[in-house]
């Protein structure tokens, strides 16, 4: 019987993570692809067309999961920043490094899919609306995190700087949301909220839920895979990487 604290300490070990994450990645990818295949076929072919928007409403099966995850990933990075500042765990820093480009791509996907939907529906791909503006600012916050990481030499310094920036950004993104709400909002309010029945017909809600779950699984799998790559790259000269990759022992200089 393995105690809880053993599990906690072992999960912070690079080698344990590298070997244990293989199965997780495999199953997360399988689950994500299956869910997305089911969800997309359901959403694109079997769900009814929207009464007002027609077929174009179907883009929400991509747009909603991407927009939702773009915010969730930023929150995860900020939470990882807190954990790093308190415990200085190396894997947490690697997690922040791996998540930033994924979050950036999801934010870009949310903006692009929103614009594609907006052209037939709103008559314009871009308006300076509260949600759109704050998503665009989130996109720039992600780019800032990636650029700061790239510009700083030394993993410790970069980790601390990125943690601080992620925290400042997380406080700021809330204030940005409130501040841009001063402008008139064109974007419809969220249809699904915690606490309260969803303002969406079940015919759309179920395929949407399947797609959201599928995106979650794919993003988690991609994050773990990116973490593995980053870990091997950082520890390339250590013995454990040489032994798990079968490169042979370190050569004497």
């Amino acid at each position: 019987m393995v105690s809880l604290s053993t599990i906690f300490h072992r999960s912070g070990s690079s080698r344990f993570f590298f070997q244990g994450s293989v199965a997780w990645i495999r199953w997360l990818y399988v689950a994500g692809i299956l869910l997305l295949v089911v969800g997309m076929i359901w959403g694109l072919f079997f769900a009814p067309a929207d009464r007002l928007q027609g077929e174009s409403a179907r883009i929400m099966f991509v747009h909603v999961p991407a927009a939702h995850l773009s915010q969730l990933v930023y929150l995860a990075i900020a939470a990882a920043g807190v954990v790093w500042l308190v415990w200085r765990m190396k894997l947490v820093d690697i997690c922040m490094t791996a998540l930033a480009p994924i979050g950036c791509a999801l934010t870009g996907l949310a903006l692009a899919s929103g614009a594609i939907w907006g052209i037939p529906t709103w008559g314009t791909g871009w308006v300076w609306d509260a949600r759109l503006t704050s998503t665009l600012v989130l996109f720039f916050l992600y780019i800032g995190l990636i650029a700061l990481r790239g510009a700083l030499a030394g993993n410790q310094r970069a980790a601390m700087a990125v943690s601080i920036l992620a925290l400042v950004g997380a406080v700021n993104i809330r204030i940005i949301k409130y501040s841009v709400d001063w402008f008139a909002t064109l974007h419809q309010p969220g249809s699904i909220t915690l606490g309260g029945p969803p303002a969406m017909a079940p015919a759309f809600l179920w395929p949407l839920a399947v797609n959201v779950l599928g995106f979650h699984a794919l993003v988690a799998g991609a994050a773990l895979a990116a973490m593995r790559a980053e870990l091997v790259q950082r520890d390339a000269r250590t013995d454990w990487v040489r032994s798990v990759l079968n490169v042979g022992p370190k050569q004497a200089p």
Partner: peptide, 27 residues
């Protein structure tokens, strides 16, 4: 303070702080 150790940091600094300026500019 974050870009203190970065060589040629002006563009990076602008990228980091301009998104944070949104609320105060709006107000």
């Amino acid at each position: 303070a974050l870009v203190l150790e970065v060589h040629r940091s002006a563009a990076l600094l602008a990228l980091l702080v301009l998104p944070l300026f949104v609320p105060v500019t709006v107000l």
